[in-house]
Every structure is written in C-alpha cells, then in structure tokens.
Design a binder for these strands. Sequence first.
DNA 1: CGATTTTATGAAAATAAATGCAAAAAACCT
DNA 2: AGGTTTTTTGCATTTATTTTCATAAAATCG
Lengths: 166, 166
Amino acid sequence: MHDYCHNYTKMKNKKYRLTVISEILRLQVIGNQEELLELLKERGFDITQATLSRDLKALKVAKTPLSNGTYKYVLPPQIKPISDKLASQNFTSHGAVLSLDFSGQLAIVKTKPGYASAIAWDIDNRATDEVLGTIAGDDTVLLIPREGVSREEIMKVINIIFQERN
Amino acid sequence: MHDYCHNYTKMKNKKYRLTVISEILRLQVIGNQEELLELLKERGFDITQATLSRDLKALKVAKTPLSNGTYKYVLPPQIKPISDKLASQNFTSHGAVLSLDFSGQLAIVKTKPGYASAIAWDIDNRATDEVLGTIAGDDTVLLIPREGVSREEIMKVINIIFQERN
DNA sequence: CGATTTTATGAAAATAAATGCAAAAAACCT
DNA sequence: AGGTTTTTTGCATTTATTTTCATAAAATCG
C-alpha cells in the first residue's frame, strides 16, 4: 500500500532539491556552499554541506571567478534532454542506425546509406561526455570514445540516443 | 640602476605564465591546482599554489564537475571581437580550433562546424614531422601522429599553428 | 637617483569543498 | 510483510582553495 501522507516540510526528495538548487543558482549570485546551504534551509531543506557538495557535483555546477573579485556557482549550459519526444522526432527511431562495433579504441556505427552525417551529428551533440568526436562517411560513422570510456558505456549511450520504439 | 641580466630560466613574468596556464588548460584535463602546479614546475615556473590560485582567478578559470566523477578547470568561453576576425588572414587565429584530445595513439581536433577540412589541411602542411595524416569530418579532425611522437609534441605543434592572437 | 606607490609573491592561516565510511532510507522483489 | 539491494545522507576528516599579512620586486614620479 502506498503512503498518501507525503510530508512536504520534511521532504527529502533529491530530485526536487536539485531543481530548487538550480532555480536558486539561476536567480542569484552564490559564492560558496555555506551561503547556498542557508538559502536551502530557509526553504526547508535541512541538508549538510557534504550533501550539497554532492548535489552541485551532480548538477555539474561550476565555481567561477567573477570580475569583481568574488566567485559564483554557475549552472552548466543547457543540455539537450534526451527525451522521448526528441527521440521520436528524428530518425533515431527510424532504424537509421544499423549496428555498432568496436575495434580497439574505436567504434564503428553503420547506418542506412546517406545517414551517417546526420547520425554523427546526433552523437556529437548528445554524447559529449563519452565521445571525443566522430567522422562520418556515407553509411559509416567512425566514433572516437573519450579515453577511459568503456565499450559498455558507448553502447549504452548509443542505445539511449537511438533507441527503437516498440 | 637597471638590471640587464634578466634570468630567463627563472623568469617570473606573470603575463607569460598566464598564457602558459591557458595553453595547458586548453589542451588537457586538469582536476586540481596541485596537478597544474606540477606541470608548471616542469615548464620552469616555480610558483606556489597560492599564486596559482590567484592566477586562475585572474583568468576566470572555473572548476567544473565532469560526468566521470572528477573535476576539470575550464577556461572561460573565448570572447572574440568581430574586428579581430576581420583583421585575421586565415583560420589560424579565428579560433576555429576548439579543442584537442587524445584517445590511445590518436588525437581528435574539434573545430567550428565546417572548418574541419581546412584545419586538417593546415595540420597536414605544417606538422609533417609530427603528423602522419589527418581525416576530416565536418567539425572533427582525426589526427594520426607519427609513431613515437608524444602527446606533448602534438599539443605543442597544434598550439603553435593555431595559437590565438591577443 | 631616492622616495613613493603599485603589484606580485610566499608562508601560514582560514575557508571552502570533497570524500570515506557507516548508517538510514528508499526502492525492489518475491 | 520480510528480506535484499540500491541510493542517499551525515559525520568526521581529508583535501583543496582562498585569503591575510608581511615583504620583495617593479613601476612611477619629482
């Protein structure tokens, strides 16, 4: 049985908290974690600096120097979400990607004829963390994984990007 | 009285040092100041971490989390006045080269969209000693270093060829 | 050149941030 | 529900970064 009595004052939902953190950072200049911690407390999030540090890491928030000699935590540039909507709008779900194979440190993506450039573009834009770069022919994409990224990780991300609908 | 005996090995010029720091950060992943300090020492800059902290602040270098769980110091986005662009004769100083990374024995040069072929041509022609060949996509150049050529050497030559003017 | 002001730097101290580890909470099964 | 696994968190501590303060070096000026 589900618990209908969600206690919002005490809510410890990480996802929600991350959202709130993003909002705060978008609207005001935060120079250190203590400061942000204070604002979060005001909003009912009773966490420690350790957790906040992890949250900021998860959000990929960077600490950057300002011209006035202070610092500011800044959100990463908006990343295109890998949403179902997006996925269903381009060929990603049209089966343009035929196969993925590996040879040494390189990966080869075979596509339908003519699709390689388009597929490569998708990969470049949506797997920036895992992929160093791509080079497209007509029906083949050469994919260079970032050093230290495993084959599994590449497979996973390619799967996510080009997942078939059922 | 002026001192004519400038000791270059011990050169403590801030401006130059900042340039070198920028170069390093542009080309490799630095996760903390100690690490960078070490690289600077190798290059003859004998400074303390305190100074480096100030340097990074001056350069507005941000510390940002990576998806692999580590951190990276990143330079602020390059702001190029249009007048500079007009004044330049070739891509070399247009900032068409965005990044240089390595994976195994290969190097990947990311460029502005459409620039890859041109950049590849420049590399082919000006780094014949270090580079065996290149393959260009749209915004990615796959660079195959000559056997025995180190990453450092590649970084160096790419830096020389595509150095930004101030 | 001296005197004065500005800038750069190191050493040490103060802050800030990251993390190992254990425990608590939540999510997942049968 | 009861057992199991995964995720989240706090605490304590480590590690990293920033800053203060004193001094040295460089630039400025009369």
